[in-house]
Design a binder for these strands. Structure first.
Lengths: 204, 204
DNA sequence: CTAAAAATCCCCTTTTTCGGGGATATCAAA
DNA sequence: TTTGATATCCCCGAAAAAGGGGATTTTTAG
């Protein structure tokens, strides 16, 4: 009998998983918690075999909870869980010691499979999540000088070289140099691609 | 007896709601669908009293589905549903004719309450969602045509008008028209500002 | 059916960006 | 002290975008 504990702040998700697992003979829900504190307390009192851990929790994130759980119970089998959109967290969750990962869009079979494998200490990663992990070595955020950051911010505001020059009290030609350096550092062919990357990487 | 139909692509959410509603005597689930097409078909065949409609659906969005449902069945009671993070959609959902709105973090009581009110044709809005609606007028996301969205995506990729024209099999002049319309709709002075806004609003 | 919206294409001019260079002063670290 | 990084400024020409028109055909919705 595999005992599963769920950490998720959405009652309907908790109930959904409970319902999905209900007619699985070899799986039993040991409990659930809506946040990190309740989860830690409950798990201390009653160790489950597998913890299904949502990444988005109020107050303390799922990542942080994962780290604490691994620290306190090194043998605990943790499965990360989130929607596909939060792909950037997947790798971090794995780094924090999660054994596997399921998406909230997973089918019943997939969840049962993941739990069964996790209980045996074996990894499971959703196919799509794996691709998200494997595919892009993700353009690492280039290192920008402080001046370049200023110029980048101005560009993102929609200013032209001339306007930026006026604001920063430098020559438009200098602004153009910075702009070219930014394009090179980001590997962007034009301003559109540059701004897209910069915004996505939280630099603007 | 209130008959509820759920549209959500996450099995665990569907099962969760089903479980939550199971021991409500006056509420019955008439069915569920994972996407807009299946939903339309099912609802045509068997009209429910209330539709619980997730905003994030694959292919056709919940907004679009809401519009079509209202069009086809003007009397249908629709409740929008999403996570709190997608607040920008709430107002649009209401504009598309949704009667109310619940968050996926809603408690059982809240969901039952919302459904009961909706069945009677009365509005329900989650407290937090209401605040999100009331508070910031926030640069409203402009409404884009499908072609404009395509062009926008291409621009964000760093393609030039000529390259976009080649990809979409249209004249570069047409692409330029779309580009100008995009700039106007976003109130952006140039491509940099346009892409910044688009990325920030999750359109790219 | 008919009006509105979307998508298509075209013209012109000006401004801005891009792609190549190159050059100089400063400052910090090797 | 030399090297490297940063910041500054410059030139040229080609390409692209912006600003401001107008016009036509499909599609869509009332």
């Amino acid at each position: 009998m595999i005992r599963v504990f769920i950490v998720d702040d959405h009652p309907m998700v908790v109930e959904g998983i409970r319902a999905l697992l209900q007619d699985e003979a070899q799986i039993e829900m040991s409990g659930s918690a809506p946040d990190a504190f309740a989860a830690l307390e409950a798990i201390r009192g009653d160790m489950p075999d597998v913890v299904l851990l949502d990444i988005n929790l109020p107050e303390v994130s799922g990542l942080e909870l994962c780290r604490r759980l691994r620290q306190e119970f090194p043998g605990l089998h943790i499965l990360g869980m989130s929607t596909f959109k939060e792909r950037s967290y997947i790798s971090r969750m794995i780094n924090e010691g999660a054994l596997g990962y399921v998406l909230k869009s997973a089918s019943k079979e997939e969840i049962v499979n993941a739990i069964t494998l996790a209980a045996a200490g074996r990894a499971y990663i959703n196919e799509e999540a794996l691709q998200a992990l494997a595919a892009p070595p993700q353009a690492p955020t280039p290192m920008l000088t402080s001046r370049e950051k200023e110029v980048l911010a101005c560009i993102a505001e929609g200013l032209t070289n001339k306007e930026i020059a006026a604001r920063l009290f430098i020559s438009p030609l200098t602004v153009d140099s910075h702009r070219k350096n930014l394009l090179a550092k980001f590997g962007a062919g034009n301003t559109a691609a540059l701004i897209r990357l910069a915004v996505e990487q939280g630099l603007v």
